[in-house]
Simulated scan of single mutants.
Amino acid sequence: NSVLTLQDAVVLLVYTEYFDNRPLLVAQSNKRCAVIGGSGFLGRHLVEKLLDRGYSVSVFDIRQSYELPGVTFHQGDLCDKQALLPALKDVSLVFHCASPAPGSDNRALFESVNIQGTRIVIQACIEAGVQKLVLTSSASVVFEGTDIKNGREDLPYAKKPIDYYTQTKIEQEKLVLEACDKEKGFLTVAIRPHGIFGPRDPQLVPILVDTARRGKMKFIIGDGTNLVDFTFVENVVHGHILAAERLRPDSPICGKPYHITNDEPVRFWDFMSEVLVGLGYAAPRYHLPYALVYGLALLLWLLALILRPLVSFKPTFTPMRVALAGTHHYYSCERAKQDMGYKPVVSLKEGIARTVQSYPHLKQGA
Rank of each mutant, 00 (worst) to 15 (best):
V141C: 08
F317N: 07
V236C: 10
S332N: 06
L292N: 00
Q116V: 11
I126V: 11
V121F: 00
Y331S: 06
L299K: 01
I241H: 05
Y164K: 03
A83R: 00
E111W: 07
V176P: 08
C180M: 10
E264H: 10
N1S: 14
Y165F: 13
Q338L: 15
I170N: 00
C33L: 14
M272V: 15
C333Y: 03
D80M: 08
A108S: 10
P309V: 06
R119L: 12
P309A: 08
S137I: 11
A108R: 10
F41D: 05
G151S: 09
N226W: 01
V189Y: 04
G351A: 08
Y342K: 02
V266M: 07
R119Y: 01
E173P: 03
R200K: 10
P156S: 06
V345E: 09
G40M: 08
D52P: 04
E234M: 15
A98L: 13
G341D: 06
K159D: 13
E234Q: 06
K169V: 10
D61F: 07
Y286L: 15
G222Q: 05
E234C: 10
L302E: 01
N106P: 08
G103E: 04
G37F: 03
S332K: 04
L175S: 03
E334M: 07
G76Q: 05
T5N: 02
A101L: 15
L279Q: 01
V233I: 08
L292Q: 00
T168H: 03
Y164M: 11
N114L: 12
M320Y: 03
A353Y: 04
H259R: 07
L362Q: 01
V237R: 02
K149V: 15
W301Y: 07
I220A: 01
S2A: 14
S347K: 02
V293S: 02
L208V: 04
P252C: 13
M320V: 13
R246P: 02
T355P: 10
A283S: 14
L296C: 14
I162T: 03
P289A: 10
L68S: 08
K149D: 09
D105P: 05
V205D: 00
V236F: 04
A323P: 08
T355A: 12
V141D: 04
L247P: 05
V11S: 14
K182V: 15
K160F: 07
K81E: 15
I241F: 05
T316D: 14
D223G: 08
C254N: 06
R22S: 11
D339H: 13
A190H: 03
V11H: 11
L299R: 00
D8S: 10
V228T: 11
V189G: 00
A366C: 13
C333P: 02
Q116R: 12
H240T: 03
A27H: 11
L155G: 04
V237S: 07
L85E: 12
Y15M: 13
A98S: 09
E183N: 07
